[in-house]
């Protein structure tokens, strides 16, 4: 049942999830929860499609998708860090905005063919290795150099970090921008490197799954590839089980990624596994510096 074909499909389906979750790990490590990731992903998908159809250049498509995501990330950073808006509300609002812009800019492009796309084919092993390398690099930056110490310090204890001379607001905004950029890039890759078509609503739901991957990976870039592969595998399996000889109902199968996410979350939270992952202590908590001590 587990054929090589299935594994390759799992890698292909898991790649955009991995890219998005790696960015969000950085954002959340600095203490910002960005639920806008869902809208960023969807927008990235639309932007990459439109850009690539117009320019015939996939690199340009990916870059523009990243920039679009970065802009939304920056907005989330300003609203939730500088203006201390509730992170959940700001994130959801951005998701809605992302959906809206995606459907507006993509409307005239529905049904158009992609002139070019990223073809992986039998180079999947290279894709896998570079994914692992990037995950390792991001882990290294987060845990082995000063940059990572700065990011983690504002996510764990922003008040002490401020006392040690870290610019909490700037750090949080920049990591949110970075997370947004990778989120947009992920959406772009989803269209250009995986499904190769676009209609309104393409990519919806992927951002939520990436958010779940961040949690079960314990905010560790090294674990993200494993869970991305698992979720990619579920998607690949759905495709397989719709075909003969299985012929499962596509709608019921369509619920499985979400059911899996829910189950994995519960398994992690309700069992002793919970001890092994500690969220950044200041995740979701705005940073205050007022001229008064309580």
């Amino acid at each position: 049942m587990i054929s090589l074909d299935l594994i390759i499909r799992a890698i292909l389906a898991g790649t955009p999830l991995l890219i998005a979750s790696l960015g969000e790990i950085y954002t959340e490590r600095s203490g910002v929860l960005n639920l806008g990731l869902e809208g960023i992903f969807v927008l990235g998908a639309a932007v990459s499609f439109v850009t690539t159809v117009d320019s015939g250049n996939v690199i340009l498509g990916l870059i523009f998708a990243g920039i679009a995501g970065g802009i939304l990330g920056l907005i989330h950073g300003i609203v939730s860090v500088s203006f201390r808006g509730r992170q959940v509300v700001s994130g959801l609002a951005l998701t809605i905005v992302g959906y809206g812009i995606a459907s507006l800019i993509g409307a005239k492009y529905v049904g158009k063919p992609l002139p070019t796309y990223i073809y992986i084919g039998d180079k999947w092993i290279i894709l896998l290795i570079s994914e692992l390398a990037i995950a390792f690099l991001l882990w290294y930056l987060l845990f082995k150099i000063k940059l990572g110490a700065i990011i983690r310090s504002v996510g764990e204890d922003p008040i002490s970090a401020y006392g040690l001379g870290v610019d909490v607001v700037k750090t949080r905004i920049l990591t949110t921008l970075f997370g947004g950029f990778l989120g947009g890039l992920a959406g772009g890759w989803y269209v250009l490197g995986y499904i190769h078509i676009w209609t309104e609503g393409t990519g919806m739901g992927r951002g939520w799954i990436a958010l779940a991957i961040v949690i079960v990976s314990a905010w560790n870039p090294l674990l993200a590839p494993i869970f991305s592969l698992i979720f990619g595998g579920v998607e690949a399996a759905i495709w397989r089980f719709q075909l003969p000889p299985y012929n499962f109902n596509p709608y019921l199968l369509g619920a499985t990624p979400y059911l899996t996410t829910l189950l994995i979350l519960v398994i992690f939270m309700a069992t002793p596994l919970k001890k092994y992952f500690r969220p950044p202590k200041a995740l979701g908590i705005p940073f205050y510096r007022e001229e008064r001590t309580i």
Binding site: A149, S153, L164, G165
Partner: peptide, 19 residues
């Protein structure tokens, strides 16, 4: 006032602007 989840080196390096 130090950050529990960081090592001694990391804590000290945060306050060294020159790094």
């Amino acid at each position: 006032q130090l950050i529990d989840e960081l090592t001694i080196t990391e804590n000290i390096s945060l306050s060294l602007r020159s790094l």
